[in-house]
Write a protein that binds this DNA or RNA. Sequence first.
DNA 1: TTAAGTGCAAATATTTTGCTGTCAC
DNA 2: GTGACAGCAAAATATTTGCACTTAA
Lengths: 153, 153
Amino acid sequence: MPERATVPEGYLEAQLLAKGVRMTRQRKAILRVIETSGEHVDAVTLLERARKLDRKVDRVTVYRTLGMLKKHGLVDELDLMHLHGGQHYYEVKPGRHHLHLACRKCGRVEELHSELLDRLEGQIKREKRFLIADIRVEVGGLCARCQSDGAKP
Amino acid sequence: MPERATVPEGYLEAQLLAKGVRMTRQRKAILRVIETSGEHVDAVTLLERARKLDRKVDRVTVYRTLGMLKKHGLVDELDLMHLHGGQHYYEVKPGRHHLHLACRKCGRVEELHSELLDRLEGQIKREKRFLIADIRVEVGGLCARCQSDGAKP
DNA sequence: TTAAGTGCAAATATTTTGCTGTCAC
DNA sequence: GTGACAGCAAAATATTTGCACTTAA
């Protein structure tokens, strides 16, 4: 049961080709992993999974590809309250922004779409005349399950 | 012209004493700097400034003090879209949450209080039964000034 | 007195850079 | 063919840990 809506396979590749970016074997593998991971992936996990598709993917290429995707506004970078260390997580930039609720106890991340967030974006544009490129809402705390769970880990 | 509302001097120290945390010369200096910096400070800047108050503050003590403050829920950690590198920024946890608008061109960070954010918190609690410990809203993009500035850096 | 805190050195974690060779177009 | 990309090694950045010494309460 994937928790996140995913994106059609080949979406990122198509976007990049449309922008005239070169497509390599390594990039294809990395893009495929980002698209099909039904969760937020960090660079190390991304590397592991991409290597299963193509043994010849290097760690540096993962970072460079992520940088390129950020530059083109195709992925969002999160840190999910650094629940598991200082690394970043990546997701395909969705059409509509959403919130991330990270549970400090079980580590699960829930997502929430909200009309209020859409309206908040409108307020930022209107009142601050700020041109939004990315927006990141991360909430840390205890999920419903962990609150009722008493002391179970 | 400080852009942020600050907190009464001695606030953090009082909070910690009330929690039975020991107060040292080094901690006093670090707390003072966090309270009086009219902006978000990162660990390195914090160290520099704390050293001006007390030469004997070590980098490690800064990190340990920040960790302790986080644990007690007295500061919030931000990364302001990593505009200037991978480090974190800290601010005294405010009574009311606010948004941070980070301009990718000039690097300035604006804050915005919004009733919509308050309502969003309410929605999270009600619909997701999520117990919020921290909430972080960071927006990257172009501020009003940089949009009109044409090509000036 | 003594548990908690500190400094110093070293380690770790994450990401970036330089350079040389390779490949997509 | 050539400019963009990849791999490898090494560096840079940011933060954490181990341990012996110091200090607040």
